[in-house]
Design a protein around this nucleic acid. Structure first.
Length: 572
DNA sequence: GCCGTTTTCGGCCCGACTGTTTTCAGTCG
């Protein structure tokens, strides 16, 4: 898939045009196109082949031609040309927080900056202060900015952000001046990774809130401290921004701070078409700017002729059109989940007994779990031999007779071997209630081979679910190069469910894949892959992915009750 | 550079904070 590469090129073109002081809207066009390529559900090359590039929002005649040429020749001439003209150091300089194209160009031309270390050296030697419009403070900020990018870790996992946000929320909630508080931003949209944490506070005493926030014990550095908006860096180098508003603006502010940016832009355009104006304070009408909405999010959407759009959909990926036509999906909710179909016990690499896991699941209100310990080939994870597997099946049957209030399915996470065959023979597989097949080796094999292994596994009549289909571990390992489209199509044909693995590092299948799966009529199973009881909590991240993928209850296998899920699994 | 049931040309989202000014440009989200 070259989708991301194409997006990167467009983003880089936008950066370079910005350095050339180009028309802002032309720059925005490149960025918008890049964003839409990043979130494209299918292989861009397929779209080229069908000659449907211009159906992608933000791709017009010019960009379509650039994409087409890129696939034909492997290069984009305009990109190569502009790149030659732009000093590479300028592109690096604008990644420093607080430094935009104007400052970067000024420093470059006046001081002949050659590299970031060179810039740092000159800043520390006070060569920068004294240039037009620049004094000591700016110089200090440049040094700080360079230090920041040196240690910058990029985006954090959603789970990390949720934890950090909660620590700040809990602290601020204790203030009597805080009337309402809500996380916003990509955290609220349940994006798989988050850059920084946005929090909205409703209070009539913003100064007090700002003062408390910037003095919290977890603060390492105050990045900004204004009357209603402040930003801090925590001791874990996580940026948290808090904005205080009055209660009549709560809904409008929450829409604004939740984003995404693309979604907000669409809302504001829609408002203009209706003679309205939207900002974080509300929706305003007429010359006298009378506020007609703002208190709740529902009110804001309604005033624009839309039904309420859940945060997870706010990406300008068709949700606005769907809301206009009142055909938004009724998204899956955590409470719809009736059980967990991928759970490990101490028979393989889990920490707790089968009963221990079952008991914890029952307490969560689940009707069932599937114990799916590893198969014999995965020795490192304590995979079960044929004999042990049969013994475990008997044991699970015994436990079921004893246990009240929850059912345990006898399952297995069966290794897909190098040739696509499975790690147990059919006469063992058929004794299991649920068979999950997964790739645990050969991650670097060519895409065709990996795809073929998974496809072959799905064609086995006993395989019910494919676990973590792309194998990615965010921050550690990229997705392997499988042909997702092919996998999904075969999943549909063979009536195999695809897993949404809810491990925060995995979230695999991801949101984009889920949406495509739904379009193709593929059933998903959201599973925690829990190795300890606490990991059952990760279900909410899996549900987050599903919601971002527009999934409804009927699209997810484990929303079915015990009887139905058993029937469904047998039917394959 | 994109886009169109008011437009194929002329629009294109909106505001806070900072550092430098003395009314605002630059940057960010």
């Amino acid at each position: 898939m070259k989708n991301l590469e194409m997006a990167r090129i467009f983003n880089e073109i936008a950066d370079m045009l910005e350095l050339q002081d180009e028309n802002l809207f032309r720059i925005r066009a490149y960025r918008r196109a890049a964003l839409n390529l990043e979130s494209l559900g299918e292989d861009l090359e397929e779209v080229v082949r069908r000659d449907e590039l211009r159906k992608i929002p933000g791709i017009g005649a010019d960009l379509a031609l650039k994409i087409k040429t890129f696939f034909e020749t492997g290069r984009v001439d305009f990109y190569e040309k502009i790149k030659k003209k732009t000093p590479a150091v300028l592109l690096e300089m604008i990644t420093i927080p607080g430094m935009g194209p104007k400052t970067a160009k000024l420093l470059y031309s006046k001081l002949k900056i050659r590299s970031i270390p060179d810039l740092e050296k000159k800043a520390r030697a006070h060569k920068i202060s004294g240039l037009p419009g620049i004094k000591d403070k700016t110089e200090e900020n440049i040094i700080k900015g360079i230090e920041f990018i040196k240690k910058k870790k990029g985006r954090m996992l959603l789970s990390t952000a949720a934890y950090a946000a909660n620590e700040v929320l809990e602290r601020l909630k204790r203030l009597k001046e805080v009337k309402k508080i809500s996380p916003a931003g990509s955290l609220r949209r349940q994006k798989e990774t988050v850059r920084d944490i946005d929090i909205l506070v409703i209070s009539t005493k913003p100064a007090k809130v700002m003062k408390t926030f910037t003095a919290l014990p977890q603060v390492k550095e105050v990045l900004a401290h204004g009357p209603t908006k402040s930003g801090i860096l925590t001791k874990d180098d996580i940026q948290v921004d808090v904005r205080v508003m009055e209660k009549g603006s709560f809904g409008a502010a929450l829409v604004y701070f939740t984003g995404s940016k693309a979604h907000n832009i669409r809302l504001r355009k829609l408002a203009i078409e209706k003679g309205l104006k939207v900002n974080e304070y509300g929706v305003f009408k007429g010359k006298r700017e009378k506020r007609i909405a703002g208190k709740t999010e529902g009110e804001v959407y309604e005033s624009l002729g839309l039904v309420y759009i859940p945060p997870e959909l706010r990406e300008d990926q068709g949700e606005i059109e769907a809301a206009l036509e009142k055909r938004l999906p009724k998204l899956l909710e955590l409470k719809d989940i009736k059980g967990d179909l991928h759970v490990h016990s101490d028979w393989s690499d889990g920490r707790y007994s089968i009963e221990g896991m079952a008991e914890a699941a029952r307490k969560r209100g689940y009707e069932y779990i599937a114990i799916t310990d590893h198969s014999k080939g995965l020795k490192i994870a304590g995979g079960l031999s044929n004999k042990e597997r049969l013994k475990q099946i008997d044991e699970i049957h015994r436990i079921n007779r004893r246990l009240k209030g929850i059912k345990v399915l006898a399952g297995a996470e069966v290794d897909i071997r190098d040739n696509g065959s499975l790690d147990y023979s059919d006469d063992i597989l058929k004794k299991l209630d649920v068979v999950i097949a997964a790739v645990h080796s050969g991650f670097k094999q060519p895409g065709e081979k990996l795809t073929k292994r998974i496809v072959t596994a799905m064609k086995n009549r006993y395989v019910d679910i494919i676990a973590h289909p792309t194998g990615r571990l965010m921050g550690t390992r990229d997705a392997y190069q499988i042909d997702t489209e092919e996998v999904l199509k075969v999943a549909k044909d063979t009536d195999t469910a695809i897993e949404i693995n809810a491990y925060p590092e995995r979230l695999d299948l991801n949101d984009i894949g889920c949406r495509r799966a739904k379009e193709l009529g593929v059933l998903l199973a959201i599973s925690t892959d829990a190795h300890i009881t606490e990991q059952f909590d990760n279900m909410r991240y899996g549900v987050g992915v599903a919601r971002r993928g527009w999934l409804e209850r009927r699209d997810v296998l484990n929303t079915l009750s015990w009887d139905k899920v058993r029937e469904r699994l047998k039917a394959k």
